[in-house]
Design a protein around this nucleic acid. Structure first.
Lengths: 253, 253
DNA sequence: GCCAGGAAGCGTATGACATACGCAGAAGCG
DNA sequence: CGCTTCTGCGTATGTCATACGCTTCCTGGC
């Protein structure tokens, strides 16, 4: 969490100001901070910096995203980035919001379940494409523009369901959290060792039948060995979540 | 993901070996790597290092956990840590497993729903006590001893439910993922700016009524202003998840 | 039109960090 | 007892984020 201001040197820095306190990157993302018009025309821009950083992360992972690496990708000097972004933390916040982009268009012919399902799949696709986003440290509540727009649109799918405002938001958080968690599990399993064909093979080396009878059975059944159909897994869990929401809606009508 | 081995100098290093490939920290955690008995009696130990690191993280957050900081807390030299841990990534893996510890004891008088509920609350408590654990980068599939034991015990709660092995695991991942996500949301909201009394106040500054009617209504209702009863929030979502699972069980019986 | 002020790019420098390498001494084994 | 193994740690290196300040470009205001 930083306070956003521009100092005497012109670089974007962090300072304690009564009126400007926002989570890192939020002011810039909402256009509350821009250039005055004076000075040389920038060759650089926040958008270009973010795009370069996302490209690095997509190829080499989050750990490869250093200010100097991003600058090198842009053919610029490291310190020039600081004219457009206050620091690495802000850059990361922009990167995450960038990869999720705008939500899918709202369709009036869909009921809440179909709407949420479609959104969940779109979200999952973004996580899968950019798994490094899972490792970006917590910076604050959802406040970046795309994030907020996803929430706004999704709240709309519950317009006529009888849920309270708080419940609608809670239900949304449940679904999007489920998507994130599935993406995380996929990323974890994707990190299985080079000499382990599967998660099952890994566990087989660690557990014994006496101490871990349930897992032993699971592992012996081969369930963890076959390359899971990640889509089916996702669907299964999503249906559980949506069934639970449906049970609530039934109570409300 | 590292390969675990001990090099000529005696420090724990990473090397490409056919037979020892395990996710970082797993071999050590399962006692597959220990000392031979030769050499001076160690003053240091993996357990002490991990405990010191957890203490630092609990007070100052994950970013404060540097090898030199942990060593300082132990009154030792930074490089001495490397005799017991291959690197920072391994240290982080041990830290996370340490804070979750052993799962609550299994109770035979509980049905699956009660059992899962109790476990969920215990898990949430650990996340709340150690929110830094949320920011530890993905290292591999769940393979650390405590983690595996939590899974084993929880699988037992579904023993006589008619679910397939794969379904049982999926359902477990759903619940534990829900807990993690709630902890994450709490941590995010806890990062609200110093000049924002609430998440609602933050959003109020960013959105306008025309573009964000749903959120505007939510914010105007004051729902996001009052200090949420986090426990009630958690309960609400957990019940949705468990209701969804219950719907599945009904189909299976 | 002029000029002061603001802004962009970036060179230089600093401190923090993770960890490689190797020395000295402690301890076990044959 | 000699040799091997292991522990603690000093020294060193490269990477990283970012503070500070210089030069040049450009605009807004008079």
């Amino acid at each position: 969490m930083v306070v956003v201001n521009v100092d005497e040197g012109g670089a974007v820095t962090e300072r304690n100001t009564e009126v400007e306190a926002l989570p890192v990157g939020v002011a810039a993302a909402w256009g509350l901070r821009g250039r005055t018009g004076r000075g040389p025309k920038p060759v650089m821009s926040l958008e270009r910096i973010v795009a370069a950083a996302v490209a690095v992360a997509d190829v080499d992972g989050l750990a490869a995203v250093s200010m100097s690496r991003v600058a090198a990708e842009l053919g610029a000097a490291t310190m020039s980035l600081y004219r457009h972004v206050s620091g690495k933390e802000e850059l990361l916040a922009h990167m995450v919001d960038a990869v999720f982009g705008m939500p899918p268009t709202v369709r009036e012919d869909e009921d809440w379940r179909a709407g949420l399902t479609r959104r969940a799949w779109t979200l999952l696709s973004a996580w899968r494409t950019h798994p490094w986003a899972l490792d970006v440290p917590i910076a604050g509540p959802p406040a970046m523009p795309h994030e907020v727009t996803w929430t706004e649109d999704a709240l709309g799918t519950f317009r006529d369901t009888g849920l309270t405002d708080r419940e609608r938001l809670s239900v949304l958080m449940l679904v999007s959290g489920y998507v994130r968690n599935q993406a995380r599990l996929e990323a974890q399993v994707g990190e299985v060792g080079t000499n382990q064909p599967s998660y099952g093979a890994l566990l087989r080396r660690l557990i014994d039948e006496r101490a871990y009878p349930e897992l032993n059975r699971l592992v012996s059944s081969g369930v963890l060995d076959d390359p899971d159909d990640a889509d089916a897994e996702f669907s299964f869990g999503l249906d559980r979540v949506l069934d639970g929401i449906e049970a609530l809606l039934r109570k409300r009508s």
